[in-house]
Write a protein that binds this DNA or RNA. Sequence first.
DNA 1: TTTTTTCTACTGGTTTTCCGGTATTTTTAT
DNA 2: ATAAAAATACCGGAAAACCAGTAGAAAAAA
Lengths: 213, 213
Amino acid sequence: MSMPPPKIRIAIVDDHPIVIEGLKMLLVREQDIAIAGCFVDGAGIRSFLGTNEADVVLLDITLPDINGMELCREIKKLSPSTLVLVISNHSERSIIMQSIQNGASGYLLKNASLEELTGCIHEALSGNITFSKEVKDIISRPTKNELKGVPQLTKRERQILKLLAEGRTSAMIAEALFISPLTVDTHRRNLMQKFEVKNAAELIMAATQQQLL
Amino acid sequence: MSMPPPKIRIAIVDDHPIVIEGLKMLLVREQDIAIAGCFVDGAGIRSFLGTNEADVVLLDITLPDINGMELCREIKKLSPSTLVLVISNHSERSIIMQSIQNGASGYLLKNASLEELTGCIHEALSGNITFSKEVKDIISRPTKNELKGVPQLTKRERQILKLLAEGRTSAMIAEALFISPLTVDTHRRNLMQKFEVKNAAELIMAATQQQLL
DNA sequence: TTTTTTCTACTGGTTTTCCGGTATTTTTAT
DNA sequence: ATAAAAATACCGGAAAACCAGTAGAAAAAA
């Protein structure tokens, strides 16, 4: 007689009990999968991996006690053969890339379907780096925002940008900085040129989107 | 013989299948609760409420097709006796308050426990406005930024605000919306008045800080 | 010490915004 | 049905922003 195939041992780390519950319920239907443990923080999974083994860790990157990226690195150090799949709400390209750099074998958004989830688990086990469909889309099209890097501003420009965001006019800014309003005007136009925008309103919008305000 | 008590009919709206699954599994264990329907977008719950009834809607505020706040208002209009509990990841005080202003009977973060969830459902049904523990904490310590309430904008004002943020002039906005540029000017001035700002740049700044853009 | 960048400032003109009103119509709520 | 809120539109005028250049001084980098 033949042994039953060993099940894939999965650990879940997520600070939302609801999400854990959801993942668990979705996964227990799979015959080849066994839930090895569920944890709401980094401490939980770490102590677990000290005495137990897991083939795959489903990891949320927003956790109460530790940044998910770091935790991912730690897990790979503690147990190099364990694969980490990040399951997150963050759809920023940079975060996805960072996860992979920290040793994750894949990245899924929380709106992924069961098929995507199990698909990614198996893909990862066969050595590939995998993404859910939506994540693939994000990777394939770097948004314009990320293409043209953040404009390089001078000290004076940053100063003036900040004052503009406070609703000051060129005249007021000039007074505050002890320079001619005409100079302020020049800086202001240079700012608009650097951000490729048409007026102050759009300038503030662009600047805030790039976290410069 | 006595009839069994009628069950609480609950509808779930969340764009994450995993979350829906989690909530469902947590709630079916409760004897006095029945899941009436689950939806991943606003259109789903709207058409459902057209022909069905629900006592409580568990509502996520980030949905693919419509803003959860608006949806909440719509639900209360369609079916005033239906209670809405917002279940969200956003822990900003302003968003919590806005939800209540839009007719929600409570606000829970997604990391709430089952006890909190069922507790809030029953509290809401008995006419109270309820929050999960963490949300209560957030409410109890207001940050300076959030003290001055979020201005209540009309649909048109939101439209114009958005176009302003894209750098459009009043004339361009007028053309896009098929109204007179003079009308756009009026709206624009009303916007500045509501935000208590002096010009478009500061308006955009204020609006982004209040998560309205 | 050159070279480059940044900051400064100007002319002159056009466009747009901003202000303080007023007022009708349409939509929504009571 | 009526009241309130929202959307529409206008006038006239002042203030500010925006555009297209040019250009000298100061500071930073090579």
